[in-house]
């Protein structure tokens, strides 16, 4: 399902003393099957954009096109549930949304709200719990007896069980240890490939963005600062560094090499392997002297 934001503006608490402009003139296209990463500092408007993707927020200006639906400020929209069924959001710290007596019931909650029968929902729960790397016997436990990391996985399973076409992730690995972090990111990536989903990842981590995303959008003070493929974005990392944003280690290393030897590598490297190859090439050519 294609999603496209067209000149979207959003003001929080419009017409009150607390009115605050969160995003402005934001246009982003997310064609079906894209893995898009949105990066920016706290308060740059990332989370606000994310909430537009399934019509939790409606733009105060501009429009959001989700599949064949158009969401604007103009009229009260009916049947937004249809959108939410197809766009699943994993919010930050999703473990805060758990409430049922058992893990199974909690995972079934989403699908059943969207009209899936109980039997089908249970099948989905079984599948989802395996996807997030937990064992089936956890299904009968109370979600509140689990560890923090397990709760996070259960909450994610709850969104996966809805089987959305588009999956939106708001810092899904915040507060996890490095290993859990990688496992979860890899799991989402695999899912993205296998089911041909669109994935939108909101993150602080340039490493994650450069490693998984096809497209990166950099947000700065509520506006799109830059967008493009990781290679385009990191071709000139100076601007990013000026904004105080992190640059992936590989890019930083390439920059150092180029500075030290006063030469340019043939292309902007994103992965470690690419960089190794490029450096090898450099030495083979006989440079640097």
């Amino acid at each position: 399902m294609d999603i496209s934001l067209q000149q979207v503006e959003y003001r929080y608490q419009a017409n009150s003393p607390f009115e605050r402009l969160a995003i402005q003139n934001v246009s982003i296209d997310i064609p079906s099957g894209t893995y898009l990463a949105i990066i920016g500092h706290t308060g740059s408007g990332k989370s606000t954009i994310l909430q537009h993707l399934n019509a939790i927020l409606r733009p105060t200006e501009g429009k959001v096109v989700i599949g064949d639906r158009e969401v604007t400020n103009a009229k009260k929209q009916k049947n937004l549930k249809e959108i939410r069924k197809r766009v699943g959001i994993v919010f930050q710290f999703p473990e805060h949304q758990l409430f049922e007596e058992t893990v199974e019931k909690d995972i079934c909650f989403g699908p059943m709200n969207f009209g899936v029968s109980e039997a089908d929902a249970k099948v989905r729960a079984r599948r989802a719990i395996k996807q997030v790397g937990l064992s089936e016997d956890i299904l009968q436990k109370s979600p509140f007896d689990l560890s923090g990391g397990q709760m996070r996985r259960v909450a994610i399973a709850g969104v996966l069980a809805m089987e959305p076409d588009v999956i939106v992730l708001d810092e899904p690995t915040a507060g996890l240890d490095p290993r859990g972090r990688k496992e979860i990111m890899d799991m989402f990536y695999q899912l993205h490939k296998e089911r041909n989903l669109s994935t939108v990842l909101v993150t602080h981590s340039m490493e994650d963005a450069s490693q998984y995303a096809d497209q990166i959008v950099i947000m700065h003070q509520g506006q799109v600062y830059k967008k493009g493929t990781p290679r385009e974005i990191f071709y000139s990392p100076e601007g990013l560094i000026e904004l105080g944003l992190d640059v992936p280690e590989v890019v930083r290393f390439q920059q150092k090499i180029e500075e030290t030897f006063g030469t340019k590598l043939a292309k902007t490297c994103i992965t470690l392997d690419e960089l190794t190859d490029e450096i090898e090439q450099l030495f083979k050519r006989g440079e640097p002297k």
Binding site: Q51, N54, I56, K81, R84, K85, G88, I89, F91, P94, H96, Q97, F109, G110, N113, F114, G158, V159, M162
Partner: peptide
Amino acid sequence: EETDKIMKAQTARGVE
């Protein structure tokens, strides 16, 4: 704030 957040999360899970 917390209420707002949870409402949004549950809305995304199909609660109206």
